[in-house]
Design a protein around this nucleic acid. Sequence first.
RNA 1: GGGAGAUUAGCUCAAUUGGCAGAGCACUUCGUUUACACCGAAGGGGUUGUAAGUUCGAGUCUUUCAUCUCCCACCA
Length: 882
Amino acid sequence: MAQAINQTDMPSTFDYEEAEDRLYEWWESNGWFKPEVNKDGESFVVPMPPPNVTGALHLGHALFSSLEDLMTRYERMRGKAALWLPGTDHAGIATQLQVEKLLQSEGTSRVDVGREEFLARTWQWKEEKGGRIQAQLRKLGASCDWSRERFTLDDGLSEAVTEVFVRLWEQGLIYRGPRLVNWSPGLMTAVSDLEVESKEEEVLLYYFKYPLKDGGYLPVATTRPETILGDTAVAVNPEDERFKDYIGKTAIVPIIGREIPVIGDDYVDMEFGTGALKITPGHDFNDFELHEKHDLELINIMNRDATLNENAGDYAGMDRFDARKQLWADMEAADLTIKTEKYLTRIPRSQRGGEVVEPLVSTQWFIKMDDIAAKAVKAVREGDIKIVPERFTKVYYHWLENIQDWCISRQLWWGHRIPAWYREKDGDPEGEIYVGREAPKGDGWVPEEDVLDTWFSSGLWPMSTVGWPNEDTLDYQKHYPADVLETGHDILFFWVARMIMMGLWFTDKPPFHTVYLHGLVRDKEGKKFSKTIGNVIDPLDLTAEYGTDPLRFTLITSGTPGNDINLDVERVDYNARFINKIWNMIKLVNMNLDGELELGLPDKSELDIPSRWLVSRQQKLIQSVQKLFDNYLYGEAGNQILSFMWDEFAPWYLEIAKHNLYGENEAEKTKTRRVMVHVLDTCLRLLHPFMPFMTEEAWKYIPHDGEALIIAKWPESDATLIDEEAESQMMLIMDMIQAVRKTRKEYNVDPSKRITALVAPGSQRALLEKYDYAFGRLCNVATIELLADDAPAPENSASAVVRDSTIYLPLEGMLDVEKECERLTNEREKVTADIKKREGKLANAGFVNNAPEPVVQRERDSLAESQAELQKIDGLLASLCQ
RNA sequence: GGGAGAUUAGCUCAAUUGGCAGAGCACUUCGUUUACACCGAAGGGGUUGUAAGUUCGAGUCUUUCAUCUCCCACCA
């Protein structure tokens, strides 16, 4: 097939500002983001991790979007019906907080306006702010099918949520009851274990006297004195000689005077603190367990806003931290304190609000996780799901095998309301509970106020977005299970594990076969981005300055799977220059075309050595890239493509090709054009998933087959084009050119001076004769004169040896014999050392017998080369430096 | 307390199955040759954190120690 392209209008640089939006719109309006573009292809589905609906794009989004778009574009080019399914998450707490802040700024609050008005305001907020992140993802070139965009509060997804809740209830896996939970006083809701972050902080450890009824006291230490008011026992270790006799006696709670027992339990660490432990079952998870074990009383002393309640006596109504100070002061006055000391311990704080989380007894909904988790463990263990990188499977197992029941109720308004209703019975307003898809018939039913944890709905994402629970639809059949789930390792438990559990439990199929986990993006020094440090990098600033492609390429090539990326903006700059480089390669080719050109490579037998070399090198590149892609090693693949283009194609092939392009031989000219176009075309295809905009635009400027690069075919390697002979010969030419450049430099030969070179070609007379023009172009040699095999070394010449070929540069009066001898001697030393090393290796029977044949052969070849070089150098030394 | 990762050039990072340790930035010297100065040429810079082991061969596998980071866990 012959193709012509318009050569007149190629801009001198890639104008990303102009091109990006135009290309994106073109792709999208042609339906190329839809899986239907490859109707008959195998399905490939990537569910997008739904960003918070009102969020703004950060580098984490840019990273997932770059990787997932790469995967999607790659599979699309491979002919698959690729679907990258986008959507957003309602993000219960995060969104509710933003709207509450807004209300606060208006001088009102969610309680003031009421639930209905609050939800209306939140939907309004979502409509106003919600489009932003989608627009930003478009800016990054995300080729997702926007026509299928989903939101976790959409009707269909809400139906899935209700269905799952009701089924779990019917299966007896959901229960409700008062439990000690992590309570966030600022957010006024329960939070799950995962939403609590503990960091080491310096606090005070308070030592005090626990008075005994019979007189005397037990010394006790605590970090939270206010919880003394809720104590229902004091515990000591029964092995403890100091205290064991106190077991069974009665202690008196300081200040409020309640009587409590002294108990013995080996849980108490004799070495720590005073060796005696106060027990507060209502406000401490360990103490709660002891309370169950010893049948102790449980007293709740705290309100939902972390003020103390009526059980705290005179301290009722005080904030927990004020009460702490006041109580301690009162105890000091009563001579009940011993001392305080500084103490480093982990303080649990709410991941969202940042305030100290309080263990608090409240009535919540839970899912029994054991059976569900076991299935999820099994699926990974048996290989139905693969986690990349593999090391995270261990972390995954550990969490699932020690899983706690999941507290799914949240005392929020923004979210999926729990489908439960209560009716008064025997004086208990919640005496009767109904759980169902619809409100129950009959009078007196009051709906549950609580909503579900945000992760409950996102845990259903791969199913609910394709129509579950309606499994009969074509959409569901085709797109569930999905294929790859790509996300950050920080939400392995929050999201990935829950999707796997839910997917397996309800469909009996793993929701995807591969989990690819990326790391966190950090700054150049490896610090987390933070507004307080002021090191935040906005991806959109980078795309504005450099364009989208360099950022994408940088994020993909800056790290390895699962490891954090320290983003160095210099790399974005460098990659922007790579894009410029490619653009200019295209420009060179473009301006050297003329009319129609047949596509595809000429037959190998017609190609010259540089072409055979280039094609062979590219075949190896394709093989390597394929292998890397198969193993999700996209970063290395990108680097190899860059290296091929920048270090081989551009500086060697394109320079040498100019000889044919600017020459008169039309047949050679055409062949060279075809090779250049073909190799460049292949490079653009390989690079398209990394840098979609520039490659698509550049593709227009070379002859090509097909409407758009986004739907062009992914390159496949052809092993018959690998050509070791051509690679070896080309390597000789390149080595000789580099030797000339180096020699010229060492003698300070004016770079613009076109010199003559004499060459003793050794075994490669024909090769050097044919490609002597390469020297002219690449090391500014005017003429190459091939010497007879038996010709003596020319006088007054600097020389360089490559294998069994020697190149002489006549320097007339400029040759410094002493310097030349020094150069040759240095060279000789290097070569001798090399020979010695290789001879040693080859003399080692272990090496020769055990190493794979190609490795041994390479060693032999290199040795032969070095030996030839040594012989030549010795000849030169003998004639020049006697 | 348990687990994971990292440690390679001054800085940021690569190195796919063990097979001649590489890039970019920075540095030195030089050069505008009509694709590209957003470029090109030549160069300096490494005992791959430590100590041992396995192997013909180790950045890569095993073990020790050190430093840093992260995750998990109920010591007041």
